[in-house]
């Protein structure tokens, strides 16, 4: 195994609803993901997998525990640094695509590069390359509403790739798609993983999709209950 790109250690997340009600969602999760790995996190709703995804995507801070992403200790970083790390290290793909509706496909892909301070010419050049990568080069001037679900998701994946992130974090990326277009999107992840060596973390509730990945992490009630490598299952 090569070096770990994600290293979660004993992550605990508590929510406070009112003063008295303390709710612990994650009970000390430890997880390592290697560079170039394609893993999936599965679990029923309410299992804490979304919270775990927020932790991995540093959209939220853990209550305790440490998180090292691509060699950077993010558990102690400030808000502004977190924005920067999200921008450079993580590519998000959402179930609902979350494209900016008033701007074209090309501009959507340029967005992370805009926040990274890439020049206009370079942004456009890179965005076109990415559109080509997801086979959407003829749609650069289209607005999100003019695209089908599968096309939108491909644009979203291209956007996630914009700053050459260390990982792609995909939250139910096929959840809103029919099985055929869902298949195309999954194929795209496999392609990016194999050809570009991108680390992919897929959050899903579908065992079927999960089974395509190198490793399946199952979560239940805020704990990792099993890790499954290709064939064998290691039950914790």
């Amino acid at each position: 195994m090569s070096e770990s790109i994600i290293k979660l250690e004993n992550i605990v997340k508590k929510f406070y609803i009112g003063k008295q009600n303390e709710l612990e969602i994650l009970h000390g999760i430890s997880l390592k993901v290697s560079k170039g790995e394609f893993i999936s996190i599965v679990g029923p709703s309410g299992s804490g997998k979304s919270t775990l995804m927020n932790m991995i995507g540093i959209l939220d801070r853990p209550t305790s525990g440490s998180y090292i992403l691509d060699g950077i200790d993010v558990s102690s970083a400030k808000d502004k640094e977190l924005s920067n790390i999200r921008n450079k290290k993580i590519g998000f793909v959402f179930q609902t695509y979350n494209l900016i509706s008033r701007t074209t496909a090309l501009k959507n892909i340029e967005l992370p590069m805009l926040y990274a301070g890439v020049s206009k010419n370079e942004r456009e050049k890179r965005a076109r390359e990415l559109l080509k990568l997801v086979e959407m080069e003829d749609r650069e001037k289209h607005f999100p509403e003019e695209l089908s679900g599968g096309q939108k998701q491909r644009v979203a994946i291209a956007r996630a790739m914009a700053n050459n992130p260390a990982i792609i974090l995909a939250d139910e990326p096929t959840g809103a798609l029919d099985s055929k277009t869902g298949r195309l999107v999954m194929d795209l992840f496999h392609k990016l993983n194999k050809e570009q060596g991108i680390t992919v973390v897929l959050i899903t509730h579908s065992k079927e999709l999960a089974s395509e990945t190198d490793r399946i992490i199952s979560i239940k009630d805020g704990n990792i209950i099993s890790e499954e490598y290709g064939g064998g299952t290691i039950v914790k």
């Binding site: 995507g57 959209l59 808000d79 502004k80 924005s83 920067n84 999200r86 921008n87 450079k88 998000f92 959402f94 609902t96 979350n98 900016i100 509706s101 967005l111 992370p112 926040y115 990274a116 956007r159 700053n163």
Partner: peptide
């Protein structure tokens, strides 16, 4: 709101 969330996920800082 969702757009703001997306932008933040994509790396927008509070000040941007």
């Amino acid at each position: 709101t969702r757009e703001i969330g997306t932008r933040k996920a994509l790396g927008a800082t509070n000040s941007s």
